[in-house]
Amino acid sequence: MHTDSPPRVLVTKIGLDGHDRGSRVVATALRDAGMEVIYTPPWQDIAAVVGLAQDEDVDVIGISSLATDHLLVPKLMQALKDTGLGHIRVVVGGIVPDQDEQDLLSAGVSHVFHPGCSLQKITEEVMRLAHAAREQAPSII
């Protein structure tokens, strides 16, 4: 039962954009796939996301970005590494220009979901990444 506890996913937005309908749709889909979704208001800063990830012990962070906030994600990746949270998988969804995608992946982002991607594809990928993250999470006892 303990190894099968539901994946924990933080769904949030960083930067200044407040369009959060997409993140709500995804949060609901992840819930329907049996995951525990920690949902926050938009406008989080990097330090807040790191703090949330620590407190909530999440397996995956989903960043919704519709207005260039994805450009902040490499900073988030660095902050997670610096805090010892390198096992947490990060995915980005929304509007990410093709020329930026490679930069995100190089910074350590696991997956970028573009418009038109099905919810099923998103939930399957997040589920897979959550299990991978859990395998690598440092053990405390």
Binding site: R31, A33, G34, V37, I38, T40, Q44, G51, L52
Partner: peptide, 17 residues
Amino acid sequence: SGGAVLGDRCRMNRHQT
């Protein structure tokens, strides 16, 4: 599904750091 959207954070947004 057994899943959940945990939204209490939306009202407790001042103490993250």
